[in-house]
Design a binder for these strands. Structure first.
Lengths: 131, 131
DNA sequence: ATGATCTGTAACCCTACAGTTACACGACGG
DNA sequence: CCGTCGTGTAACTGTAGGGTTACAGATCAT
């Protein structure tokens, strides 16, 4: 129940992913769940620092915590990453094209209409025929 | 000439992607290159604010600028996003599993060895057989 | 009960950044 | 040459983030 199609704020997700330590925490958790202290010991920074990182990750629902005695075991929740994935998906077609060609195309495209419209007008999205 | 396999700092990339406005700028540029002013007009914030966003995006090599008369035309460079994609790739297998099952698995896994080792030791990475 | 352990949080730095307004400078059009 | 346009940047403010140390609360062993 409420397992599928829960929408997470991709805002919080992207923001959580911005910090290298947090990404490393996720990478660590990918190998298996760990209690907070254990996680902290894997990093050069202080334990409270990691605790705050975990708070952010929790806020983004990228990790979930469950108490286990006096430990707080954290485990990964990859679900919010789907949003990142689908955002990224819109760009995948782009990096299939040669960059220099894309650049040339765009430059030509723009100088063709220097003071009318600026971008390729409607949904004329860089059709491969131009390359 | 240094066209392929240029390594971008995924650090700068993730950080650039953290801001919603910058992601929107990229989304905009996906429709076609535009001069700075044009981009700025698409957002509620001031033009210098966008200029600074563009600086960050430039720093992350997510956009490239080329002068065109007195305009500075920005175009998208999706290349650094590959790093994000490949980082994300390590998580794709995870979100194929049911979350509740994953959770149960991990909990069981941990309580099995409460005070010995904490994580599934070596590279025993949640083989699908457990679900 | 008592003390050690695990953890989160508050209080406090300092830096980065998103936003603003004001300004500087090159490019164009007369 | 002069005004305007397009753009970047400096100066400044407010806020959030990441780091620290010190402390508080819960749990466990004795």
């Amino acid at each position: 129940m409420r397992n599928r199609s829960v929408t997470y704020s991709s805002e919080a997700t992207f923001q959580a992913l911005a910090d290298p330590t947090r990404r490393a925490v996720l990478d660590l958790l990918r190998r298996g769940s760990q209690p907070a202290g254990e996680i902290a010991r894997a990093f050069p920074v202080s334990r409270p620092a990691i605790s705050k990182h975990l708070r952010l990750l929790r806020r983004a629902h990228l990790v979930q915590e469950h108490r286990q005695g006096r430990n707080r075991v954290y485990h990964l929740n990859p679900e919010p990453l789907r949003a990142v994935d689908s955002w990224l998906d819109q760009y995948r077609t782009f990096w299939k094209m040669s960059l220099t060609n894309l650049k040339r195309f765009v430059e030509a495209e723009y100088s063709k209409e220097t003071n009318q419209g600026h971008a390729p007008k409607s949904n004329r999205k860089t059709s491969k025929g131009d390359l």
